[in-house]
């Protein structure tokens, strides 16, 4: 039982990170209807910024950790907006597949730039413990303070995001664009501003996810975003792509299931397949995901 609870806690902290990344996928999909494959590299860059800054700050202080987190979020947001402005905006209105391939190109570009020895190189580097490290025990159950940080920060950010999307003018504009971009423009929504804002928001969350992921698995390398990115995308589809609570829920489910399965000895080597098996099952039973709204196709 303790073993199960322990795995559950581990799963929740992994799931919280998946949820943060999944939110970015889902928001961009909501307004632009395309899969932003470069999102996993924004996540990686977030962790890199955290690494670069964390080395110059004293380890194990709360303010240091928060500074690293904020800087990574700001840097990632800037990167996301820049990518959108330079690459996706000129392609807006062309075939979705072209944008998809361009996104893959951006993703490859960021990976290969960071793999260049003068930028970072291919070898993983240790991520400093920027937050205070403690082990908290409840009976046999041990929760590391990092896991608490991950879960708290993720929960806070998701609540803030929910407030932004449902309580602010910009959030209303975002939802309007997601429903119908043309109609939104007709009533005076500035499409470009909304899209830039969406990218900034989603990328900031991915940057936070990058730092939190690097804290829990303390190493950073240029390809670190690929698998979490893919799984977070699966989480977004699982929850119903375009739906913000869906992405959070999908991330939590995926992280938990994956950790529980990975924890059992017999199935641990199939860990990476589990995410996709879950996805396929859900999509076959409910093709719009758990919380996605099904829309009738108009002919």
């Amino acid at each position: 039982m303790t073993e199960f609870l322990q795995q559950l806690v581990n799963g929740l902290s992994l799931g919280a990170i998946y949820a943060l990344i999944a939110l970015g996928y889902t928001m961009v999909y909501g307004v632009l209807r395309f899969i932003n494959f470069a999102h996993s590299e924004v996540f990686m860059v977030g962790a890199m910024i955290g690494l670069g800054l964390g080395r110059h700050l004293p380890e194990g202080t709360l303010w240091g950790g928060l500074v690293v987190l904020t800087a990574a979020m700001a840097g990632s947001a800037l990167l996301g907006v820049t990518i959108e402005r330079l690459v996706y905006r000129p392609l807006r209105g062309t075939a979705t597949l072209n944008v998809l391939i361009t996104a893959i190109g951006v993703s490859l570009l960021l990976q290969s730039v960071f793999q260049h020895p003068q930028v970072f190189g291919a070898t993983p580097q240790l991520f400093p413990a920027v937050f205070p490290v403690k082990k908290i025990g409840f009976g046999d159950l041990v929760i590391s303070s990092n896991q608490l940080v991950v879960i708290t920060v993720a929960a806070l950010l998701i609540v803030v995001l929910q407030l932004v999307v449902f309580r602010t003018r910009m959030g209303t504009a975002m939802r309007a664009v997601a429903l119908n971009p043309q109609a939104a423009q007709l009533v005076g929504v500035n499409l470009n501003a909304v899209i830039s804002f969406t990218f900034a928001l989603g990328s900031a969350l991915a940057g936070a996810g990058g730092v939190l992921y690097a804290l829990n698995y303390p190493s950073v390398e240029p390809l670190m975003g690929v698998m979490p990115g893919l799984k977070a995308f699966v989480a977004a589809v699982l929850g119903g792509i375009g739906s913000i609570p869906g992405a959070a829920l999908g991330g939590l489910i995926l992280g938990t299931v994956e950790t529980l399965v990975g924890g059992s000895a017999a199935l641990s080597t199939y860990k990476d397949a589990i995410a996709f098996a879950v996805l396929i099952l859900i999509l076959l039973c409910r093709p719009t995901g758990l919380l996605g709204r099904s829309t009738a196709e108009k002919v």
Binding site: L230, V237, D272, A273, P287
Partner: peptide
């Protein structure tokens, strides 16, 4: 047979998933 009932992005992601599952199966 199961995945071609889906369309567009969903089909893309399911085929991606099956591709990964095949790779993991060979790993095991």
């Amino acid at each position: 047979i199961p995945s071609l009932r889906l369309r567009g992005d969903y089909l893309a992601i399911v085929t991606l998933g099956f591709g990964q599952i095949i790779v993991v199966m060979f790993q095991n």
